[in-house]
Amino acid sequence: MIDDSKPIFLQIAEMIENDIVDGVLAEESQVPSTNEFAAFHRINPATAAKGVNLLVDDGILYKRRGIGMFVATGARDKLVGRRRDEFFVQYVKPLAREARKLGISSGQLAEMLGKEIDTDGAPGPTERVVAL
């Protein structure tokens, strides 16, 4: 949910992005309206609109006049690509740091990762935060 870590419009944009990556919001499906975001998250509607517009400018969402906002075709691939680029810095580096601190070798780490990725099956979308 909304926290104080960064501007709310960025958090709204990220929630929508998460839902697109998880497949909760399919491409060409309609995104909740700005007002629905505002009411649900109890935030200023102008702030919600700013978050949605960020994704419009980015080509992730597009506007159909008089109807609302929709997920663009190709949005998921675009987001997944971007997140893979960020994956190393965001997840691998902190993981390696903590492993070093605890004296876990790279071999042990690889083994743990292998076990987790293989047995877990589909990484659960249930753990994800669903925007609406």
Partner: peptide, 29 residues
């Protein structure tokens, strides 16, 4: 909740004085 709802439908200028800042922070522009 009602403030956000009604403001969304009927935008207007609202000045809210408060010292319960955490409670109102997300409503403010």
């Amino acid at each position: 909740d009602r403030l956000v709802e009604d403001y969304t439908e009927y935008p207007r200028t609202i000045v809210l004085s408060s010292h319960l800042i955490d409670e109102v922070a997300n409503l403010l522009e």
